[in-house]
Design a protein around this nucleic acid. Structure first.
Lengths: 205, 205, 205, 205
DNA sequence: AATGAATGAGAATTCATTCAT
DNA sequence: AATGAATGAATTCTCATTCAT
């Protein structure tokens, strides 16, 4: 009968979509199986448990972000300012398309008191995001302020992204992204920029 | 035996705490009953269903915010700047104590695709918050920018609050609050303030 | 505080109506209490249990039938034929008004394998009905045939009454009643009537 | 372990037996599961809900009657009189064996004010029965009287069947069936029979 | 690999009954 | 008498997981 061989990526993508739409507890294994074109019993050929699946989905998405979004921060082919722009654009795209960016917040908040194994990838996601931004801000300010700014920016973007989804208005996120890039530009032109590493050699993490 | 009387406020408070800790789907009616010192069957003396209970909790908390936090925006006994400070302090207190402020985001994200009846109080909460801030910003800028600023501030605070809870670091929220108040002060001293209603009579909403 | 003193007859009538409408198992004690203008807890001042209440309702209704319907069979002030007519009319009235006549069949069928204590009044009702008719038929035929005829008539009337209620068409019952009276009249004029006690002194049961 | 396969027919038969014995409301899903040799959770592999199961049982039994009992009315290989005899015999057999014939009355009366979805098969059953008898009576009388007679016969048989079960005496039903066949025979020999379609070609329904 | 049957541990909810006030 | 709170057992239904085919 039908249904091609199911590859792991398809499966993780399907699972992500279902978890994204319904949250962890309200998603049933049957929902996910169905999204993969399988029956409930069959999915256990691919996964060990619902919890292990979610853990894998989280790690997968984290990697995806690292490679496709945060990586821009370290791409020396572009100016730091352009990297920030790219990072923001990419993030906006992913957040607004299917709101995947909220996944970590959603799952994190829903399971923070119940499921340990989700913590690591979730915290890891935020840490990588913050580090990418810190790195970029370190071109225009000192180490410490760069970190603080990065943390604040992540908070702002997450807040805006969540409200965009909840209030069904993409403007929250779009405005925030514009603002962040603008501030960066202005900052660059100011004396405080002198503190940054802009004229030093870049040290990769 | 005194058949321990339970009052509705206690019940709603207990329910809020449990829902806050475990989310909507992962909370069982028995959890809530237990938090009230009841057996699970007994709680149906007070509630019609789990869903109705959550709806009521949301409305209750919304009212609480309106009265104890957002109301400061309209208190003419204080300068607008001080009102913002009060509002921020109050919010911070409530967010950081038990993170109640995240309740609307958490429940909203978890149930946005499944439970209609939660939408109204959740959206209402954000709208009231935005309106309170809009009102304060309208003293220092024009109507439109006041609204936009309010929206952005709410997004920022929510984002910071969520990260504070998720990363277990209160600094996210505290910094954001400080920043918001600082910006307001600086704004006030600038010419753009001339656009606002600062020198007009206040028109209550 | 409203609600006059509640007398037992009111209570039994209310209970009968609710049981009639919803059957035994689907009726809750709260339904009955409400029908009496009481709260659930209060009704236990009047009844011992749901089962005991139903038993009493059955006995009450049985007595009501004995006095108001079956009694006509034994009223020497009228001709046997007219007594049958009265009995049929009365039954029709009661059956069609609120279908109380079906009560015994309904409750009987619903609980025949579960609740012993209902059997007695239910069987008693049918036996009294059959006896009343037997008595009347004994004026026009012999003892044995009178009994058989009575049994058949009861079956016919019950069947018609049930279908009248189920199919919501009173004609089933009305036609059956007409037929029964007609047959009686015709029978009376035939020689077979000679077998009956019509010319003997009546022996009360 | 062969994970004992249960087929739908077995399940419906088991459910019918349990519902027959205990009525709708007093039957638990666990009762039915047990009757099928399943645990209560397992039965939801086969059914959607208790209500849907009952609906299916009713429809199933209705079809069974149509095929195995009412169908005799239209079998041109036999004389109409013999068809009536067959129909009556079959019905008697089924009614008396496990009283399945009362199922429609029982369920109908118990749920008439509460469960809509049962109405259709229940009314359908009676209508098909009446139509089968109407068809047979139309050989010995005119259309209209045939219908009236059929309705009355159904009422009589149902009444007798119910009393047979309630009073635990099969004679009620047996006598009624005998009577019905006798009347048909006598009717056939009388002039009124001339009105019927006896000498016409049969028009299948 | 895929399936579908089966499981068993809960989940929400109902309800007859008790009892202190 | 009436109430309303509390109970706890029962009931319908869900779901992650296992397993034979």
């Amino acid at each position: 009968m039908p249904k091609q061989k199911i590859d792991r990526d398809d499966l993780l993508r399907s699972a992500l979509n279902v978890f994204m739409k319904k949250g962890y507890y309200h998603t049933t294994v049957a929902d996910i199986a169905e999204a993969c074109g399988l029956l409930k019993g069959s999915i256990y050929h691919y996964i060990e448990s619902k919890e292990a699946l979610m853990t894998e989905v989280l790690e997968h998405l984290k990697k995806y972000y690292a490679r496709n979004v945060f990586a821009w921060a370290y791409d020396e082919d572009y100016e730091p300012e352009d990297r920030l722009q790219m990072l923001a654009s990419k993030a906006e795209e992913i957040f607004l398309d299917r709101h995947y960016g909220n996944f970590f917040v959603n799952v994190g908040m829903e399971t923070r008191n119940s499921i340990e194994s989700f913590h690591k990838p979730i915290l890891g996601f935020f840490e990588e995001w913050i580090q990418a931004l810190s790195y970029l801000y370190s071109f225009v300010t000192d180490e410490k302020e760069a970190r603080l700014t990065a943390e604040m920016v992540v908070a702002e973007v997450e807040g805006a992204a969540v409200l965009s989804q909840l209030l069904e208005d993409p403007e929250y996120l779009k405005r925030t992204n514009r603002k962040i890039v603008d501030i960066y530009k202005r900052w660059k032109q100011k004396p405080s920029a002198a503190k940054g590493r802009s004229n030093q050699a870049e040290n990769r993490r």
